[in-house]
């Protein structure tokens, strides 16, 4: 989908293109079905409110999926995702943008393979970081 990104094109602090996603309650139903996670907090408003929330919340895995898409969109087909992690620090609600961001924190070569470590995070429309995580990708080299 995109031009390949080469190891040499990046430095610590390089930002990767942000991705904005807009989850809907319908998407939460689709994700429940596709993942098998039928926890009612994601589609049953009464249940969510009985748990002290103002409404249903986005699955943590779905928010991490958005971050995964940000990375794979950016890398193109020649990059390989080696690690992906996220801590679900805050709630995301459907009907609000989720803004995905990432930046390079480390570059290293190991066994002649070129790795880049990224800090990744998702923010809600209130600027709160709802997912904090990291990823490691293996990228092609120009050498």
């Amino acid at each position: 989908m995109a031009e390949p990104v080469f190891y040499e094109d990046l430095e610590t602090g390089s930002e990767i293109p942000a991705l904005v996603k807009y989850p809907t309650t319908m998407q939460l139903v689709k994700f429940a079905g596709a993942s098998g996670d039928y926890y009612p907090i994601h589609y049953d408003r009464d249940f969510a409110q009985a748990n002290g929330l103002r409404g249903v919340i986005v699955h943590g895995w779905l928010a991490l999926s958005f971050l995964g898409q940000m990375i794979t969109n950016w890398m193109g087909g020649s990059g390989i995702l080696v690690k992906l992690s996220g801590s679900y620090r805050g709630m995301n609600f459907p009907g609000e943008d989720i803004i995905c961001n990432g930046k390079v924190t480390r570059k290293y070569i190991e066994d002649n393979r070129h790795y880049v470590r990224l800090e990744i995070w998702a923010e809600n429309i209130r600027g709160e970081r709802t997912v904090s995580g990291s990823a490691v990708v293996m990228l092609p080299s120009r050498t």
Partner: peptide, 18 residues
């Protein structure tokens, strides 16, 4: 892939990361 709304054609053959 549809549920996460990721249209990348890679996911026709390969499972997405999550």
């Amino acid at each position: 892939a549809e549920a996460i709304d990721d249209p990348n054609p890679l996911w026709r053959q390969i499972a997405p990361p999550t």
